[in-house]
């Protein structure tokens, strides 16, 4: 059980941000993070190290938690036009830059948004994303290229 506390300490902020970038809603993101850790506690015995590393297993549960939420809401993820972007502090760039980025991410389709969040914010490698999404690495690369180019267009169009 102490390992679970360590795990929570290590990942709770990162996973909260994962949900926040997908939902743009801090309260919902806290709920989803809480549900995710509930599932981790409850189903930790189902983790099979031979089937992949723990991080992949955890993100798989995180994705399912988010998809279940979307089904419950009977809507696909919000766009950033539906909700205020999270307040992000400035760190080298103007706050406007980060808000523009959040808006652009919110305008992507859900599949592209998830890819960007997993790769660029959560730091998952293409191989990990491929396992998670049950795609080939080549397919992930193709989709990522499209997503980044779409994001670039949406971001710079705002200037």
């Amino acid at each position: 059980m102490s390992e679970l506390s360590v795990l929570f300490g290590r990942y709770n902020v990162k996973l909260y941000n994962f949900f926040l970038h997908l939902t743009f809603d801090p309260a919902v993101s806290e709920d989803l993070t809480q549900n995710l850790f509930y599932r981790i506690i409850r189903y930790r015995h189902t983790f099979d190290a031979s089937a992949g590393n723990f991080r992949s297993w955890m993100y798989r549960i995180a994705r399912n938690t988010h998809l279940d939420f979307c089904k419950q809401q009977r809507t696909y993820p919000l766009t950033s036009q539906d909700a205020d972007p999270p307040a992000l502090s400035n760190d080298g760039y103007g706050e406007d830059d980060f808000e523009k980025l959040e808006r652009a991410i919110g305008l992507l389709d859900p599949d592209q948004r998830e890819l960007i969040v997993l790769s660029r914010y959560q730091g998952l490698k293409y191989e990990e994303i491929a396992r998670l999404r049950e795609l080939s690495v080549a397919a992930v690369k193709v989709r990522m290229h499209r997503a980044i180019l779409q994001l670039r267009a949406l971001y710079f169009k705002q200037q």
Binding site: T33, P86, A87, S89, D91, L101
Partner: peptide, 9 residues
């Protein structure tokens, strides 16, 4: 992406 500060729950 690299400098975006994360939010805290």
């Amino acid at each position: 992406f690299k400098t975006a500060p994360g939010a805290t729950p």
